[in-house]
Nucleic acid binder design. Structure first.
Length: 775
DNA sequence: ATCTGCCGAGTTTTT
DNA sequence: CTCGGCAGAT
């Protein structure tokens, strides 16, 4: 028996050793799923199965890389090299490249990111002269995306009266037409969006039996990680490929399905046993990651979900300390609490920054945390958020590179045809776009043969356009002899990107220059690494990698240990000794957008479960009494998830009864001094009481009189919850002076009836009204 | 054609 | 608060 097998428990071992046929591994959080997957692959290879015949689909590129490394440790680097491992999107993008001609795409097709897709939809809506209030590009794209993920093609859409009817009812009868246009335009541009990578793969495998057969033959063993987060399109691809040999191994945890919003179908994992014959089921239920308190606290929450598979996660680990709950006044104090707590743990327990993670529901929450960490000089790294490739200056550089590879790429062309400014304005571009549509060509094709079309350009415009084309063609010729890095460098120099940015001299300009230099570095590193590995180092491949880079893939420049900040979605699959989950408030987590249906709420609950189970030793759950959202101060109620945790696993750090704050993290830092700004909390400013209404019954009820202590800003005055009383004279930014006639409601719902001299009596929600008190 | 500045709108999560 | 869109001036 091989050595690595001995490291496994009985159920893990069974899952690793099982050889042929369909199998599902239900892997509870922290149950050694990755270990099983890597050892299973290594074991297959030790059984003389050619790595060339193994396909492993992971959720992130990072997961793929790490797993590959671990496998290489067992079987050797050269052996592991032939394994095909990656995300659905990157694996099938590569397959599509080599098979592109079957479905009429150029080999160097572009991958449109979400921004490109939205822009394209926007122009289509404009061209069709539709009301963009009714047809919101983002929503339309979301709808198209859901069609694609369910394999509803344009033709299928028009053959389905229910869908057409639904869009009519939603006052959007033209959705089908937009969809049609969108697909057309992508096709003409030689571009695929993220969903196309899966949809077109399905097309390829369905329409071309020989191709299907080729890949079935090749991928004799297929493994799919995070199966609970696959969508219908992915499901069908897997099913098609596995059909021949039925050696399909899926791994997942229904309790951690958190991507329904992008089409993930939890039914895929729930129904796996029905989809394949003679399915072997393996359950990994022992958690090796977390303390008893954490595991049981998490279990007590997830129990509230109705839709789930039968499994019982347990651990033999120590009891550990209880999950700590902390209430703070606002997001600033929340950040400070976290930073102070991390600081203390580091000092007392000799820990590194990398032992800590801060998890939140939305990216926007990171700012307050960053500020607090910086104040304490704690190094951190943010995952996700606005990605490097999402920045304007980077998109501009990349657009030039994209055009070289695929000149039909319309979105890239539109970005750069007049950047830097070369006198080609909106009217000119519109004319070109209209002509392109009319002749069913790409804009670049029109430009290349400008003389053949009668477009009424004056000679100045014509010259500018011809110069542009010549420039691009010149770049293309250079690209034939230069490697990716040299091309990028050449283009940036020619276009005088950096000079342009340097001229503006602002700090933003400086950072943009740095970013442009950074993209050059990236191309350089890519070229060198690929060359080392004797793999594809073309510019086209670089662009593909860039387009499919996941937000969790970002690497930091140095190897300083850093506190990790990320959304919970990105934290899936990761683990940290100390985890802070912040913003546990109603309408934030669970999100206000996901509280209408039971299934949405269950997904939020799974998300919370994921968050909690990231922690090994200690979890902190933080919530604030109020925070700025949309630039406005709003009252926050503690999240229902806090109440759902069985109390016996919790310790409340929040001081009640108005006693001075006792928690050591709050009250004293290690130097024994109490920062000034925190002393203020002990002397809350009294405010005239608003007419009490029945407060909702909540555990962790905040001590109300702490409110309104911290003024984070003094510009827009929101009177909500402030000193307003009947009879007061106020001034409104729009309506002018008025008198308060009556008040009703409280908190976020407090309304005032005000008589204005200009417009008469109005009822205003104080939360939003821009009022100042005059007397 | 381009630049500036204002207004208004919208912010969940991501390949 | 932060983008994006648009109107108006140059």
């Amino acid at each position: 028996m091989n050595k690595y097998i001995q490291e496994l428990n009985e159920s893990q071992k069974a899952a690793v050793l099982h050889k042929e046929g369909p199998m599902i591994i239900i892997a509870g959080a922290g149950s050694g799923k990755t270990r099983v997957l890597t050892y299973r692959i290594a074991h297959l290879m030790n059984q003389n199965i050619d790595p060339f015949n193994i396909l492993a689909l992971t959720f992130t590129n990072k997961a793929a890389r790490e797993m590959k490394e671990r496998i290489a440790n067992v079987v050797g680097t050269s052996e592991a090299k032939n394994l095909w491992m990656g995300t659905f999107h990157s694996v099938f993008a590569r397959i599509l490249r080599s098979e592109a001609d079957h479905i009429g795409f150029p080999q160097n097709f572009t991958i449109y990111d979400t921004q490109d897709a939205v822009r394209l939809i926007t122009s289509i809506i404009k061209e069709m002269e539709l009301d963009k209030e009714k047809y919101k590009p983002k929503q339309i794209l979301a709808r198209i995306s859901s069609f694609k993920n369910s394999l509803i093609t344009v033709r299928a859409y028009f053959g389905n009266p229910d869908l057409i009817e639904a869009d009519k009812m939603a006052q959007r009868p033209k959705v089908g037409e937009i969809y049609h246009q969108y697909v057309e335009r992508c096709f003409r541009a030689g571009a695929m969006d993220f969903d196309d990578l899966l949809l077109r793969t399905n097309e390829l495998l369905t329409r071309f039996p020989a191709v299907l057969s080729k890949y079935q033959q090749r991928f004799k063993y297929i493994l799919v990680d995070e199966y609970q987060d696959t969508n219908h399109s992915q499901y069908l691809i897997v099913k098609a490929l596995a059909d021949r040999f039925q050696n399909i191994c899926v791994v997942g945890d229904d309790s951690q399905s958190i991507y329904a919003f992008r089409g993930a179908n939890i039914q895929n994992i729930l129904n796996f046993q029905r989809d394949y014959d003679n399915v072997q089921i393996f359950k990994l239920e022992q958690n090796y990651r977390s303390s008893k308190n954490i595991v049981q606290a998490a279990n007590s929450v997830i129990e509230k979900n109705k839709t789930k598979l039968d499994k019982e996660v347990w651990t033999a680990n120590d009891e550990g300390s209880k999950v700590k709950v902390k209430q703070t006044v606002n997001e600033v104090t929340e950040g400070r609490f976290v930073a102070d707590s991390i600081f203390d743990h580091k000092m007392n327990d000799h820990l590194k920054n990398s032992d800590f993670a801060i998890l939140y529901r939305t990216n926007a929450q990171s700012r307050a945390l960053e500020d607090a960490l910086r104040e304490k000089d704690i190094d951190y790294v943010i995952y996700g958020g606005i990605s490097f490739y999402g920045r304007k200056e980077i998109k501009d550089v990349v657009a030039y590179l994209r055009i070289l590879i695929n000149p039909n790429d319309e979105e890239a062309l539109k970005r750069i045809i007049n950047y830097p400014a070369r006198g080609i304005g909106a009217t000119t571009i519109d004319k070109l776009a209209v002509a392109a549509n009319h002749y069913k060509k790409s804009i670049f094709e029109i430009l290349e043969n400008l003389d053949q079309y009668d477009l009424n350009f004056n000679s100045g415009t014509r010259t500018k356009l011809l110069n542009f084309v010549t420039m691009i063609q010149h770049f293309q010729i250079e690209a034939q002899t230069k490697n990716a890095f040299e091309v990028a460098e050449f283009v940036i120099k020619q276009v005088r990107f950096i000079k342009d940015l340097e001229q503006d001299g602002t700090p933003e300009g400086v950072s943009k220059v740095e970013n442009v230099q950074e993209i050059l570095n990236k191309v350089k590193n890519f070229t060198e690494e690929q060359k080392e590995k004797a793999e594809d180092d073309s510019l086209a491949h670089f662009l593909e990698t860039a387009a499919l880079e996941t937000s969790s893939d970002v690497a930091t420049k140095d190897d300083k240990p850093r506190v990790s900040l990320m959304t919970i979605h990105l934290a899936k699959g990761l683990e940290f000794p100390y985890v802070y989950i912040v913003g546990l408030e109603e309408n934030l987590f669970p999100s206000a957008m996901s509280m209408t249906t039971r299934s949405e709420l269950e997904e939020e609950r799974r998300l919370f479960y994921v968050a909690l189970t990231r922690a090994e030793k200690q979890a902190y759950l933080c919530h604030a009494q109020m925070r700025y959202r949309w630039g406005k101060l709003v009252d926050c109620e503690p999240s229902r998830f806090l109440e759902e945790i069985d109390e016996k696993y919790l310790e409340n750090l929040t001081t009640v009864n108005h006693k001075p704050v006792q928690n050591k993290f709050i009250n004293e830092d290690i130097f024994g001094s109490v920062p000034q700004d925190r002393i203020r909390f002990k002397k809350p400013i009294q405010r005239t009481p608003v007419k009490p209404t029945s407060a909702p019954k909540v555990e962790f009820q905040p001590p109300k009189n702490l409110k309104k202590v911290v003024k984070t800003t003094n510009n827009p005055i929101n009177l909500f919850d402030a000193n307003i009383s009947v009879g007061a004279i106020v001034s409104h930014t729009k309506f002018g002076k008025g008198e308060v006639l009556s008040l009703e409601g409280s908190g976020a719902n407090q309304k005032a009836e005000i008589r204005f001299a200009s417009v008469g009596v109005k009822k205003l929600l104080l939360q939003f009204a821009k009022l100042t008190i005059i007397s």
